[in-house]
Nucleic acid binder design. Structure first.
Lengths: 247, 247
DNA sequence: CGTGCATTTGACCACCTTCAATAAAGGTGG
DNA sequence: CCACCTTTATTGAAGGTGGTCAAATGCACG
C-alpha cells in the first residue's frame, strides 16, 4: 500500500513571526494545542510537520519505532492490533482533535491507517516531551487526554466482553453520533460513518455479516434509517441508549 | 458489604523529619513514588493516608465522587464496570505498585474491590495534582503509568474482541505470571491467582463454566498443572505463548 | 455495459452459554 | 474436632447467539 505524504503548508520559518499555520487550524481548540498561548503554539509549530495523506493508507505499523506523535487536523483514522493469523481488533476511530502515537515502549502499540483523506500534524516524540518542561500545561493536557482515552478503552472493554451484537451496534451508533456531532454542524440525529462494515465489525468484535444483519434489524424496528451505507439517521435515540446500556 | 478501614501507620507528623513510613514501603520502587527523592517523598506523605482493608470489600464505586487516588502497597484489587442488568466486566486486576482512581471526569469510571487483604495509600486527587507543579517528575511518571495502563487496555480489547476461550485463558495465565513474578520471589513457572473463577470469567468475557472447562483442557494437555485452585504451575510456557497470540 | 468490490441475505454449524446436578472447599457453631 | 451449611468449582446435556460458507444484490468506475 503506497503512502502519499505531502506538505500542505510550510513551517513557521520565513513568515511573519506573529503568524503561523496553527492560528487558523480547524482542530486547534479540540486538540492538545488548546492549552497553549499563541506564542507557545508557534514554538510547538517549529517542531511540527503538517502532512496530508490520502484515504486508505498506512500511517504507522504496530512495532515500528515510535518516532512521531500525530495530531489529527482533519479526516478519520483507525488504529488496530492484529493476531498472528490475521484476526484484527480495531481499538479506536480517531477524529480531528485526537492524537495517536503515544507509546509505553519504543515501538508503536498499534497500527494506524487513514479511512478518509486526512491532514495530520506530526511531531517528534522526544522533542515534544522536552516541551513539557517548558510548557507544563501541555504535559497536563496530554495526561488529561490520555485519561479520556483510557476511560473510552474501559467502556469498550465492557462492550466487547459483555454486550450482545445488537447492544454493541447501538452503542457504536451513539458513540459515533457524539463524535460527528463534535466535528460537523450536522443535525443531531444525523450520524456519519466513513468506515466500512468490515471496520465496524473489527471494532465491535463481530463479523461483517452480523453487523449487516443488526443494521437491518434496527432499520426494520424503526430505531434508525439508512440514507446510504455511510449516513445514518437516528429515529429513537432514547431507545438506542436503553439498548446500549442493557436496560 | 462492610468496609474495614483502619490506619496501619500514622502520618509524618510527630516523627523525626528525616524518616517516614514511605522509606520502608515495600512497593516504593514499583509505584509512582519511585521518581521522588526522599525529601520529596516525605512531602507527598503529608497528604497521604495509609489504610488497610480486608478481603472482599468495596473501596469505591463507579460514579462516586472521585476524591481520592489510591496506590496499592500490598494485596490484589479488581476494578470493574457493570451494565444496568448486572452483567459485569472486570477491566483489571491490580497489584502492588499499581494505582487507581484517576478519572477523566468528577466520578470514578469503575468500581474497585479488594480480592485479598490490602494495604493502600490514599491521597486527595486535587492535592496530588498540585504536587505535579512542585515535582514535575511525578506528573511525568503518572503519565507514563497511564500510558502503560492504556497499552494494557488495548491488548485486552484484542483479547476480548478476537480471541477464543482457550486463547483467552492462556493469555490470562501468562499475564498473571508476569504480574506475580514482579511481586513475589516465586519460581518463574509458578502463578498465583488469588481471584475466583467468577472474577476470571468476568475479566475474560466468558462464563465460569467455560473458564473451568478450559482449565481442565489445559491440564489434560499438560500445558499447566493445578496445585490447587489458586496456584498454577506452567509446564509449557512457549506453547501457551503461541496459543495466546494466535499462532 | 461489464468488472470488481462491498454489502446483504440465507442456510447451516460451532463455540460458548444456559440450565442442572454433583463435588469440593470453606466457614460456623455446637 | 467434626457435623452442617454455604459458597465455589467442576462436569454434563441442551440450546442459542453469532460465525462460517455461499450466493445474490447493489454500487462505483472504467
Amino acid at each position: 500500500m503506497m503512502k502519499a505524504v505531502q506538505t500542505y503548508a510550510v513551517d513557521g520559518e520565513g513568515r511573519g513571526k506573529n503568524h503561523c499555520v496553527c492560528d487558523m487550524c480547524i482542530s486547534r481548540l479540540s486538540s492538545m494545542c488548546s492549552v497553549l498561548k499563541p506564542n507557545e503554539l508557534h514554538k510547538l509549530n517549529e517542531i511540527t510537520d503538517h502532512i496530508s495523506i490520502d484515504a486508505k493508507n498506512i500511517v504507522c505499523e504496530e512495532g515500528d519505532n515510535a518516532e512521531f506523535l500525530y495530531n489529527i487536523v482533519d479526516g478519520c483514522v483507525r488504529i488496530s492490533k492484529m493476531l498472528a493469523d490475521g484476526r484484527r481488533q480495531i481499538i479506536g476511530f480517531l477524529v480531528p482533535g485526537d492524537f495517536f502515537g503515544l507509546s509505553s515502549s519504543n515501538g508503536y502499540g498499534y497500527s494506524a491507517e487513514t479511512i478518509t483523506d486526512v491532514q495530520l500534524c506530526r511531531m517528534p516524540r522526544e522533542k515534544l516531551f522536552k516541551k513539557f518542561a517548558e510548557f507544563p500545561a501541555l504535559g497536563n493536557k496530554v495526561l488529561d487526554m490520555t485519561k479520556i482515552e483510557l476511560h473510552g478503552a474501559q467502556n469498550h472493554m465492557l462492550l466487547l466482553g459483555r454486550k450482545m451484537a445488537k447492544e454493541k451496534l447501538c452503542s457504536f451508533i451513539l458513540t459515533m453520533s457524539e463524535k460527528t456531532g463534535q466535528i460537523d454542524n450536522m443535525p443531531e440525529d444525523q450520524v456519519y460513518l466513513p468506515m466500512s462494515r468490515s471496520d465496524i465489525a473489527d471494532y465491535l468484535g463481530l463479523t461483517i455479516e452480523t453487523v449487516s444483519r443488526q443494521f437491518t434489524i434496527l432499520v426494520k424496528d424503526k430505531l434508525i434509517a439508512l440514507e446510504d451505507n455511510i449516513h445514518v439517521r437516528i429515529l429513537e435515540k432514547e431507545r438506542l441508549r436503553q439498548i446500549s446500556s442493557g436496560e
